[in-house]
Nucleic acid binder design. Structure first.
Lengths: 228, 228
DNA sequence: TCTCGACATTGATATTAATCAACTATTTTA
DNA sequence: TAAAATAGTTGATTAATATCAATGTCGAGA
């Protein structure tokens, strides 16, 4: 982790959103964003830690995960540039309910929650957006709950692959996560993750070359993902 | 389901909260709460259905659950008088992410969301509360996610019993749910639910007499619940 | 009171997925 | 570059839980 000086961040969504409103309200000078750089594997925020800022990923991938019992992790999301951390908890929780760790070197932009809170205290539109995002969080986690509990490993891996395809916005992508982490995304063991991937390959549903994955038969993946 | 006329609801928390603010803002007359009665087993709201009101349980128990694949259910919460339905989704989601069904005959108070929204549009305090409640929802479901995925059935049943003890606010309570539903609360089969209950009884951790359950050794239950 | 149906219980079996063990391939680092 | 660490793979075994089958119990209603 390193604070970066003299960063010019043209396309920082957090700054844009907040910057515009703060200027509108003449509170522009309060923002003082910090640009923070994390090396691969570094922790960006830790489950149980105090939330005191809103962070947006500018560059690099990160994983949002929860540490369960026996230090077994479940990955909730893969974060890509423009994704927020912490904002979902503004006014909500004092502590992070999850951890975030860098999968690659990550550049972030962080703004203190006090500043955001003061600016948005009377901004109904922003609060609505925040609530909306909360609602979707609840909905996503409920979906995950059902998947993990009721789908078999083939369905869970298929779902994860389809999810990653959406995240990377292509049917052909290079994984930023290990097989173990792909397992944690589906909440199954590393070994079974590999086995299912191999099966899918042999069934000509996907192509694998190391971390390069190509979804060949999306139709089949969707069908497998929906079966329980 | 039956709309009840001429109900006097002295201790309706929804009405109180909203009533006070609406009076403050001179919008009292917009509320028009409906008092609705549901017979045991009736659906109070259905997963995927449009959310157009906020409902508070005045009397009776209900279950909040999600229907997964193969119409297998997972119960998220048991609702008791004073618990809200739908409010958590105000501004958030257009559709219910869960269903609620009456476990007993239930009396409810329902207020149209449009009315609440207009009253609270500029009420920062209420929005904060709403966000706070959202944060806790996320947090609770994440906990459930970890439990279901990483705890064994003994731990999950122990956790459910401790949860029910909190809901019913006593170490000795009469279940409002069947064994099957107790299983759905722990996301395990009915048969294994019975087996674990019987084991707990033989280990003198609980006493069972039909639907009457007494938690004898809470210490042990907590320990079992925390083991993975 | 009898019967039906929902609920509860128990044992046997099958299935699923985790774990263990061994090994190969690929990166990192000294 | 060699050695060590990390990542990926495969097979065998074990453990956990679901499912199936049978039976018991209780209350509501004819």
């Amino acid at each position: 982790m390193r604070i970066e000086k003299n960063v010019k961040c043209e396309d920082c969504p957090l700054k844009c959103d907040i910057y515009l409103t703060s200027r509108e309200m003449g509170m522009e000078s309060m923002l003082n964003p910090a640009y923070v750089y994390y090396k691969k594997f570094e922790t960006i925020c830790r489950q149980g830690g105090k939330i005191d800022n809103s962070t947006v990923i500018l560059k690099g991938n990160a994983k949002m995960f929860v540490s369960g019992h026996c230090s077994r992790n479940i990955i909730l999301n893969i974060l890509i540039p423009s994704n927020y951390i912490g904002l979902v908890s503004l006014y909500g929780l004092p502590d992070y309910p999850y951890s975030v760790a860098a999968l690659e070197d990550c550049h972030t932009c962080q703004i203190n929650n006090d500043a955001i809170e003061q600016i948005y205290q009377k901004n109904e539109h922003f609060m609505k957006l925040l609530n909306h995002s909360f609602g979707h969080s609840v909905s996503n986690i409920i979906d995950k709950l059902i998947s993990l509990n009721q789908k078999h490993i083939r369905g869970r891996v298929a779902e994860s692959l389809l999810y990653l395809s959406k995240v990377y916005d292509s049917e052909c992508f290079k994984l930023t996560i290990t097989r173990r982490e792909l397992g944690e995304l589906s909440a199954i063991s590393e070994e079974n993750t590999v086995r299912v991937l191999t099966d899918f390959k042999n069934e000509n549903i996907i192509n694998i070359d190391g971390r390069e994955i190509e979804l060949v038969d999306i139709e089949a993946l969707s069908r497998i993902s929906l079966n329980c």
